Amino acid sequence: MSLTNVYHLRRVADTAAKSCLICYKPSTSVLITPDNKDFFYVCPAHLQDRHFCTPIIDTEGETKRQKEEAMAREIEIVKKEYEEKQRRKKDKAKDEKEKEKDDSKEKDKDTSNSKSDEKERDDKIDSIKNAGTERKTADSPRIFELHKTFYQMRIDRLRGIEMAKRNQERMKSPSLFPSVPTREL
């Protein structure tokens, strides 16, 4: 049986949590092979232990993902700027109407509107920057390679299961046991 030493991290629902392979605490993180031959539950803290497993980083995928995120951020910024320009045009149209009515009220509104516009713009930019940093912290490695002792333990476990299945099949077949001796007269 060939088992590759590549495990992908998957998450399950809180209701489906099972005990960790190492510490037996309930865990929602599962390491599974790409061919689904082997899987086990493990705590996220153990995934950071270098003596348990090491992350495999896909450099091409990482750069591609970073480029996509940068493009998405730029698109969001352009959309927000466009919306802001449209809103300013509407505000100017309203201001012109008000200007015709009362010149003194307009001066007060312009100063307050410009200050509030600047605050809103700064808040939007800060929220965009914070969204990018939150994604980076939540994004952890998803592919791991087990340490050789843990990998050997998984191989031994799978071999034991396979041997138990073979033994069960042998026990079911009648050719395994010797036949009863017959007495010839």
Results as ranks from 00 to 15, higher is better:
His51Met: 14
His51Asn: 14
His51Phe: 14
Phe52Ile: 03
Phe52Ser: 01
Cys53Trp: 01
Cys53Glu: 00
Cys53Leu: 00
Thr54Cys: 08
Pro55Arg: 00
Pro55Gly: 00
Ile57His: 01
Asp58Glu: 02
Thr59Gly: 07
Thr59Gln: 13
Thr59Asp: 12
Thr59Met: 13
Glu60Leu: 15
Glu60Val: 15
Glu60Ala: 15
Glu60Ile: 15
Gly61Cys: 04
Gly61Asp: 03
Glu62Ser: 09
Glu62Trp: 01
Thr63Leu: 10
Thr63Pro: 02
Thr63Ala: 11
Thr63Ile: 10
Lys64Pro: 05
Arg65Gln: 10
Arg65Pro: 02
Arg65Cys: 09
Arg65His: 06
Gln66Leu: 12
Gln66Trp: 04
Gln66Ser: 04
Lys67Gly: 09
Lys67Gln: 15
Lys67Phe: 13
Lys67Thr: 14
Lys67Arg: 12
Glu68Gly: 05
Glu68Val: 02
Glu69Phe: 07
Glu69Ser: 11
Glu69Met: 08
Ala70Trp: 06
Ala70Glu: 05
Ala70Gly: 03
Met71Lys: 14
Met71Arg: 13
Met71Gly: 03
Met71Asp: 11
Met71Ile: 09
Met71Leu: 08
Arg73Trp: 13
Glu74Pro: 05
Glu74Met: 10
Glu74Gln: 15
Ile75Thr: 06
Ile75Phe: 06
Ile75Trp: 07
Glu76Phe: 06
Val78Lys: 13
Val78Ser: 10
Val78Phe: 12
Lys79Leu: 07
Lys79Trp: 09
Lys79Gln: 15
Lys79Gly: 04
Lys79Asn: 13
Lys80Leu: 11
Glu81Gly: 03
Glu81Leu: 09
Glu81Tyr: 03
Glu81Phe: 04
Tyr82Ala: 12
Tyr82Arg: 11
Glu83Thr: 01
Glu83Ile: 02
Glu83Gln: 02
Glu83Asp: 03
Glu84Tyr: 08
Glu84Trp: 09
Glu84Lys: 06
Lys85Thr: 08
Gln86Ser: 06
Arg87Lys: 08
Arg88Ile: 15
Arg88His: 13
Lys89Pro: 03
Lys89Tyr: 10
Lys89His: 07
Lys90Met: 07
Lys90Gln: 08
Lys90Trp: 07
Asp91Ala: 15
Asp91Cys: 13
Asp91Leu: 14
Asp91Tyr: 12
Lys92Ala: 11
Lys92Gly: 03
Ala93Met: 03
Ala93Val: 04
Ala93Lys: 10
Lys94Ala: 14
Glu96Gln: 01
Lys97Pro: 02
Glu98Phe: 07
Glu98Lys: 15
Lys99Phe: 13
Lys99Glu: 15
Lys99Ile: 09
Lys99Ala: 12
Glu100Asp: 07
Lys101Asp: 03
Lys101Trp: 01
